[in-house]
Design a protein around this nucleic acid. Sequence first.
DNA 1: TATGCAGTCTATAGTCGCTATAGGGTCAAG
DNA 2: CTTGACCCTATAGCGACTATAGACTGCATA
Lengths: 135, 135
Amino acid sequence: MSATHLKIGDLSRQTKTKVVTIRYYEKIGLLASPHRTAGNYRAYDDAALGRLRFIRRCRDLGFTLEQIRDLLELSSEVERPCAEVDGIASTHLAEVERKIADLQALAERLRRISTSCSGNGTISDCGVIDAISPD
Amino acid sequence: MSATHLKIGDLSRQTKTKVVTIRYYEKIGLLASPHRTAGNYRAYDDAALGRLRFIRRCRDLGFTLEQIRDLLELSSEVERPCAEVDGIASTHLAEVERKIADLQALAERLRRISTSCSGNGTISDCGVIDAISPD
DNA sequence: TATGCAGTCTATAGTCGCTATAGGGTCAAG
DNA sequence: CTTGACCCTATAGCGACTATAGACTGCATA
């Protein structure tokens, strides 16, 4: 089982990850170096595909590569208490929530800036620049 | 008027910008090279301080340095229609709103992942990893 | 006057997460 | 036997900084 010979392009298509990115993950040690064919092509098995899928799903969720590295390591140490894994996830959630709050404040300011422009004067009449730099 | 001799550290404190960052802005041509003292120290005037303040406020608002470059250029061409400046701001607002929506969806997913952890088992009992990688 | 120390100078390399490019080699189909 | 899609390595670039090394300046205190 999992003796499949997947080429890097197959992984690329199946995970929507650019070939160069897969090689990059290997270079930084996030993905193990796979076997090579006679012609020096990388030959992956299903486990590698699964691991890459996991990585990509995590990236999608906004985890950093460092966090993903931790998650991958932890997930193999099945006896460790799960508080650490949950800690990574909830730290990240807190970060995301903070970002949302920041962006909402930002959107509010931008809306105010936009309304200070009448839309048909020249810059000297327009409130936008002044709204950004209120000296 | 504006013959003040501000040192880079003064600008740094007054705008909460790291000294290296100010020098970086100069290097990429966002901030003009100021006069130098006899001892080769950068000597800024109030205009430079104002410009840096503007840049920082824009960064705070999430504009890229490229967009700020445009804004600075536009704002000096007082006869141009202000629709351009407003366009930059409202394009940016749209982006921010999209980002907020994305992050909210993301936070929702993360919350669901976090709740799959009971909090005191081992990793093998913990739903977090499985929740991320649903095979 | 000497010394210490905070502040400044230049130049270079590192960060993160890729992406792009150059200059090749491999392999299956026509 | 050539075409073309795929693969290989190695290096440099992106944005917006940040960090570091090694040297100089300028001011206060002993």
